[in-house]
Design a protein around this nucleic acid. Structure first.
Lengths: 200, 200
DNA sequence: ATAACGCGGACGGTATTCGTCCGTGTTCAA
DNA sequence: TTGAACACGGACGAATACCGTCCGCGTTAT
């Protein structure tokens, strides 16, 4: 992909479900399968969000993740930094000091301050970060709620609840023949997605 | 590196030399060795700048590149796009349509317009591009000229001129013994640079 | 005791990037 | 006319990053 990878996309989409007003804790697997996305991969994303204080985790069979702060206080920038780790837009290699005229010893004036090319890139990166810092999860959740029909959040809640119930029931009522046994996992995780590819 | 690769860094540094007020045409090899950078790699960058109309090329032994427009009309954004080819900051994979509740048939309201997450990223990318579009090669060249001692541009001009003369002379005066023969190429191109690496 | 959960590390396949090397056609100096 | 340097483009190789899976660990509720 490009500078912002699939991880942030998955992470943000998952967080949007958790940002619903009355959302309960949800496991990374359920969030992934709710969206038709690789559960293993989503499971790798959430620990980073937790270390950044964006979500809080509770272990155990009833466990899962919930937001650790109000959605209005979580900026998109915070999520991006938590997942991707502040990769800079541009890495200056200090070429100005390598000019052949200097014969190996770069004069001080040539390496003082920030390289002018680097400076433009830093300004551009900062502008990008400003925009990301200006949008919160609550803002995003608001725009999708404005498009979705009323009651969708409730549907999602029962979907998640049903999955939990099914998993618990499967444990209690597991006869020797597990004909309908793993019903909860539905048609399995066919989240493997073909690599993106251009038209030839 | 990060989203903006080494190619743009090399390209911009080379263009800054060409943006000097009285600069003559310079070959990609000379520009590269003037800055202690791989000549082969720089040679791969310039054809893209030419196709974008930023530089113009003249073949032949006296050939080289020169700016095709006044430096004040060439924006940093144009150079970046010419070299890297408009890679987006974010590639939306339309996850909103994959919600398990839809059972494979995504309703129209869910895929209408731009995904809200994608929209934030597009705004952020646009702000970044705005900043890059606001800086021209002339602006950059001005800030470096303000730091460098007067007369540096002249020194560079004679350095480039000397290399051309030396190459032409080497052809005329090549005796059977080439003792001092390849003096022009100096100590060769040891521009191979070790891969960037973090501290362990 | 079992099964699910979060956590973290190891692993593999693919795409991208940096950089080199080659071949082609063109222009100028000797 | 020969040769050298130029721009141009494609093939190639090594290193890296990313996506995604798999496994083992400790914890919690049934």
């Amino acid at each position: 992909m490009a500078h912002l990878g699939t991880s942030v996309e998955y992470g943000l989409h998952c967080l949007l479900w958790l940002a619903e007003p009355g959302a309960a804790a949800a496991s990374s697997r359920d969030l992934a399968e709710l969206q038709g996305v690789s559960p293993s991969f989503v499971a790798k994303i959430f620990p980073r969000l937790e270390k950044a204080g964006i979500v809080s985790a509770t272990p155990g069979i009833h466990g899962g993740y919930r937001l650790a702060q109000p959605a209005a206080q979580i900026s998109v920038l915070a999520v991006v930094d938590a997942i991707e780790g502040r990769k800079p837009l541009f890495e200056c290699q200090e070429i100005r000091g390598r000019c052949a005229l200097f014969k190996g010893r770069a004069p001080t004036w040539s390496t003082q301050g920030v390289c002018s090319i680097h400076a433009v890139m830093l300004r551009a990166e900062q502008r990008m970060r400003d925009e990301l810092a200006g949008s919160s999860l609550a803002d995003l959740a608001g725009t999708v709620a404005r498009k979705a029909p009323a009651g969708l959040d409730g549907e999602v809640r029962v979907w998640l609840g049903d999955r939990l119930q099914a998993r618990l029931k499967a444990r209690s009522g597991d006869g020797p023949a597990r004909s309908t046994g793993k019903r909860a996992t539905e048609a399995g995780t066919r989240a493997t997605r073909p690599r993106r590819r251009e038209a030839p």
